[in-house]
């Protein structure tokens, strides 16, 4: 009884701020009217989202079914663009193989090297050292991406590059190449760029996961004589599967969307030796004005990215706790 009496005014007060009185009898219209200032708060946000995000997104899906060259009226093609894409466009099919290689390596490297670094940092005794290494690994992530790409272009340079100079230094002159200029090596050079493949952000995500493992689990594993590699494989990795899942999703999306790196390093060349779908879309749209065909590639990428993300989130089981 008394609790009722005490709670009643309190709950009334909580629900009934000056602007948010709640009575279930109010009709939808009345409730909308009551919150009119809230809708007003959302107007600028949605005005911008509708203009610059929703309209282009739907337009992109719609125009993927058109022949749409700049300056000419759009012409409905049905599935014509997709038919051409998957049956007659050899460059596009080649670019799919390339992007699979790029993305596979991104995933492989993202679940190995940064995890090793995270484990090394996590197991350090001194917190000062831990902090220092964390800051040092994150520091390269602050350097603008374009600078890193241009630096790797320099590393691969045929005449002045660091890689060729290194090969000469260790007596492997035969291996010297114009790495980005040769059709044999261009794709691999772009794929394996970024040695030693330790992304500071990825390390931080793994570290956050490792720090979330409770001390009791680690202590009892130590008491049971489980340490070192054994602990990493039977405790750490299973307990931070959620982080691995996130990293894999990010690596897949990053790989499929990572065509800017290819654009800057080789522009897809020489010829189409390192072409990827995103760049093929860019070329079709901005070099040859084939906006409809390019939109079809964009739609394909959208469906692919969304499908892979859903598969990963849904079917890769993790021990969430």
């Amino acid at each position: 009884m008394t609790t009722e009496e005490i709670r009643a005014p309190a709950s009334h007060a909580a629900a009934a701020g000056p602007a948010v009185p709640q009575d279930r009898q109010a009709t939808l219209g009345q409730r909308i009217y009551r919150y009119r200032f809230v809708y007003l708060m959302l107007v600028p946000t949605f005005a911008l989202l509708l203009t610059f995000n929703y309209y282009p997104a739907f337009m992109g899906l719609y125009r993927a079914f058109f022949k749409w060259d700049i300056g000419l009226p759009p012409e409905f093609l049905g599935l014509g663009n997709f038919e051409k894409l998957f049956i007659r466009d050899d460059t596009f099919l080649k670019s799919l193989r390339h992007v699979s290689l790029l993305t596979s390596w991104r995933v492989i490297s993202a679940v190995t090297f940064p995890f090793i670094v995270a484990e090394l940092i996590f197991n350090l005794r001194s917190n000062v050292h831990k902090y220092t290494y964390r800051v040092l690994t994150i520091l390269p992530a602050v350097v603008p991406g374009i600078v890193i790409l241009l630096l790797w272009q320099f590393i691969y340079d045929g005449t002045h590059g660091l890689l060729n100079a290194f090969l000469e230094g260790v007596g492997l002159e035969d291996w010297q190449q114009p790495w980005l200029g040769s059709p044999k090596t261009a794709l691999y050079a772009v794929t394996f760029m970024g040695f030693p493949w330790v992304g500071g952000v990825t390390v931080l995500i793994y570290l956050a996961g490792l720090q979330g493992i409770s001390d009791e689990v680690i202590d009892s594993s130590l008491v049971d004589g489980c340490s070192g590699l054994r602990r990493i494989f039977s405790i750490d990795i299973p307990l931070i599967l959620g982080q691995f899942k996130l990293i894999i999703v990010l690596a897949v999306i990053g790989g499929l969307q990572g065509w800017v790196a290819v654009f800057v390093m080789t522009a897809g060349g020489p010829g189409t030796a390192s072409m990827v779908p995103g760049l093929w879309m860019y070329n079709n749209a901005f070099l040859w004005n084939k906006m409809g065909y390019a939109s079809a590639i964009g739609m394909f990428l959208f469906v692919l990215i969304m499908g892979l993300t859903i598969i990963n989130v849904k079917f890769v089981k993790t021990g969430d706790y």
Partner: peptide, 24 residues
Amino acid sequence: IFFFGVLALLMVPGELTLIPAFLL
């Protein structure tokens, strides 16, 4: 519903919107 309208955009990659946004 409005919130979902914002969140759904997290799934839309720049590749899909690049060309129409440019023409816009």
